Computed example of a mutant assay.
Amino acid sequence: MKQPLTLAEILAVLSDPQSVTDLKRYFGHAGESAFTGGQFERLGGGGDRPETCNLVTAEDLIAVELLSVRVPPRTALDLLQGALGEAVSAELGEIPTTVALGHPGALPLVEKGQGAYRAWRLLRKADGIGWVVAGKLLARKRPHLVPVYDEVVACAFRTRKDFWRWLHGRLGERDGILAERLADLRRQAELPDTISLLRILDVVMWMRHRDEHTGYRCPGGRLPTSGR
C-alpha cells in the first residue's frame, strides 16, 4: 500500500502550472461554465456567517448538493426542524468559526471524541448520511477547519482514516509553508479570500485525479515530474 503524500509531494502538485488552470476552470475563470461546486462555500453568504453558523439551513443542504451528494428528504427535515438539527447545532456551538486547521487550537477540535469529530459522527450516523456527506456538511459550516473529503481526494492524497489529523500535521510543517503556498495559488487563480485555503487544496487534488480515478485499488494520483 502506498504511503500518504509527503509535504514535498503536495507542494510539487501545487507548483505545477496545471493547478492554477484547474482552479480557474473549476471556479469559472477560464471562459467556460464553472463547476457547480464553485459556489459551495459562497452560496447565500456562506455556512459560517454569524447569523447561521450554528444552524443547518436549507442553503447548506443545497450547497452540499452542488458537490454531487444529497441528504435524503426525511433526514433533511430532521436537520432543519427536528431533534437531529438541535443536536448538531449544540455541537456546532462548541466549535469556533475562526480556528483554522494547522493553527494552534485546531487539533483538539478534530481529535476523536472532540468538537468537530462529535458533530461528524452525529451526522454520519443519521439515516442516509455517510462519512462523505457528513464531512461536506461540516466543511460548509466550518470551512477553515474541516476539509471537503471524498473517495477521489482520499485516493489523490493516498490517505484513509484520520485525514483531519494528518492534514493538520502537513499544514504545521516547515513553518506553515503549505498554507502560504495555497494562499499564493489562490491569488494566482484570482479567487477571493472567501474561498478557504482548505477548499483550494481540495479542488486542486480533486481536479487532478478525478478523471483517472479507477475506484477500488486505484494507485493514487500521479505526481508532476517537475515543479517541486
Score class of each variant (00 low, 15 high):
K136Y: 15
V146F: 05
W131L: 12
A34V: 06
A134P: 15
L182N: 04
T159F: 06
Q3R: 15
A134L: 14
R181I: 01
E65V: 05
R42V: 11
L137Y: 15
A8W: 03
G46F: 12
Q39I: 06
T6I: 11
C155A: 15
S19R: 04
E111V: 04
S33V: 11
G135N: 14
V20A: 01
A179T: 06
A126C: 06
W131I: 11
L198A: 09
K141M: 07
P73I: 02
S89R: 03
P224I: 11
T225F: 01
A126K: 10
I129N: 07
L223W: 11
L198S: 05
E51N: 12
E173L: 10
A58P: 03
Q81W: 03
C155H: 12
W166F: 10
E65Y: 09
A34R: 13
A179I: 04
E173V: 09
E51C: 09
T21K: 12
R165E: 13
G227H: 13
M207C: 11
D184C: 13
V153N: 00
R174K: 13
V146W: 09
V133D: 08
E41K: 08
L84I: 10
F35P: 01
D184H: 14
L101S: 02
G115V: 10
T57R: 02
S19D: 02
A12E: 02
N54W: 06
T6W: 09
G37I: 03
R210T: 04
T36Q: 07
E173Q: 13
S68G: 01
L109I: 12
E190M: 08
D60K: 06
P73F: 06
L43G: 02
P219R: 15
A34N: 02
T57F: 04
V110F: 07
L123G: 11
T21G: 03
I10L: 15
L137N: 15
L198F: 09
F27V: 03
A134T: 14
E91C: 14
L79T: 04
S33N: 09
D211N: 10
D48V: 05
H144D: 06
S89I: 02
A100E: 09
L107V: 05
G44I: 11
L122F: 08
I195A: 02
D175M: 08
I195M: 05
P17K: 12
R165D: 02
L122W: 08
R160Q: 07
R186P: 03
N54T: 13
P73M: 05
A58S: 09
V148E: 00
L145M: 07
L43N: 02
C155S: 15
V153T: 10
V56T: 02
L11P: 00
V99G: 09
E212G: 02
L137F: 15
H213F: 14
V152Y: 02
T57D: 00
T214I: 08
P108M: 11
L138A: 05
L77T: 12
D48N: 14
A139P: 05
A183T: 08
W120V: 06
T159W: 07
L145Y: 06
G135S: 14
E180I: 07
L145I: 06
E190N: 08
P224N: 10
V64M: 14
L23Y: 07
T57I: 05
S15F: 12
G46D: 05
I62S: 00
R199V: 08
V153K: 00
E91N: 12
A76W: 09
A30T: 04
L178P: 00
